[in-house]
Design a protein around this nucleic acid. Sequence first.
DNA 1: TCAATACCTTATGTCGGACATAGCTGCAAG
DNA 2: CTTGCAGCTATGTCCGACATAAGGTATTGA
Lengths: 241, 241
Amino acid sequence: MAGAQNRDDLLEKLAGAIFDGTYPPGSFLPREIDICSTHQVSRSTARSALQTLVDTGILVRISGQGTRVRAPSEWQLLDPRVTHWLTHYTEASAFYMDDLLRFRESVEPFVTMEAATHATAEDLVAIERALGGMAATIDAPDHHCQGASHDEYDVAFHEAVYAATHNVIWTQLSHMLKPIIHAQVARTRRSVEAMRESVGCHRRVMEAIRRQERSEACEAARELLSHTAEDLRDGPGASLE
Amino acid sequence: MAGAQNRDDLLEKLAGAIFDGTYPPGSFLPREIDICSTHQVSRSTARSALQTLVDTGILVRISGQGTRVRAPSEWQLLDPRVTHWLTHYTEASAFYMDDLLRFRESVEPFVTMEAATHATAEDLVAIERALGGMAATIDAPDHHCQGASHDEYDVAFHEAVYAATHNVIWTQLSHMLKPIIHAQVARTRRSVEAMRESVGCHRRVMEAIRRQERSEACEAARELLSHTAEDLRDGPGASLE
DNA sequence: TCAATACCTTATGTCGGACATAGCTGCAAG
DNA sequence: CTTGCAGCTATGTCCGACATAAGGTATTGA
């Protein structure tokens, strides 16, 4: 394994090794000094990176014993970094994906209703921009528009809806959900036809928020999510990357 | 300021100083070496504690410039430690309390419905034990029963409901909400009469979960929360410690 | 023989000092 | 006035050493 440039590099490498199964839950990591020599960093740097992994509930360090990987149920999934690592290094994390989809199904109708009540003009601008990007990328040659892909606009749409609630908790949850939503969106490879339908669903959500109609917003969000869930269960095993 | 025993002591002291307003958002913390001499620890220890505060979004450190407190909107409220510090060191955090109450009002009906669907016998045992504790403490001399107070049983009840969803996200959210719920419960100083009524509301929630009646569970949770909200708005300004 | 105790090994926790690097400020040359 | 160099400050990284906690092993005593 090559050397790391700095603390953040090492952190990313260690996290990657844990989340890709190199160090499964319950197993021990190498000793600090071995990590140092392997990655060409000093003990301070190694300890700093390890400390972050302890803070996120991924590692336990016991003096005199070593550093071991905790059970995944202890990992702080509410930390955006953890969901980032999970979606980037863990393949077919079906277990969590199911929980996370159930979570979104519970939560997003309410979030959309809250957005309908509290959205400002600025929030609507952000939502509309994301929707416009989604629509524009459909006909674009490489499905990109102004440097962003269809999926990225999709994620931005949901993020903007969460932000429109003007509630700190919902907003922070969206940060943690961002990698998840991105992964879920990316797994639903859709035809141009399906993409247009998706845009329609999203538009219905936006219109409901604009008109401040809570019950319609709730219903629109529910339908949007049911489409996502359907797409995920359709071709999930098929295209893992 | 007295010396700290170890890393965790220092972390707690620094967090306390930030959350109680000694170092308000935007201000700079002392230099590392000053923190070292003030708290009688080495630079490694100080850096380790500071790193954790960076990981929770509370501090930013810029090389050559210093360490400053970030805006509260950047703080990772989803981390249980942050909510712990918030409730223990920040007085009259009405701003967040409002957001957090709104959040609970949105979420707990759903959580209770999910619990009604997924609760096992063990979950019901835990819920019932908490409820029994709440009831038992009412008539106890010092409102304690087996070492736990009425409020602690109340918190345990809500925690058990979250756990009964058998969903990782909800369970972890309950860890973060625990200090919040405890603070909210503690602020609603109730008469014996009101406590009995509260137990009745909680029992209605439990019964709905036991009978797996989703809509009734939702309604019961809503009523329970409306009582909490009412109590909070009633005597909130009165007793801020 | 068995159990309680002392000792030793291991790996993390803390310490102290040193140099490298990133921002910022101010002076000076063009 | 602008640009560029020098110097300052505080964090980032490195090194070597000792302290401490957890586990295993050997010794000792009943």
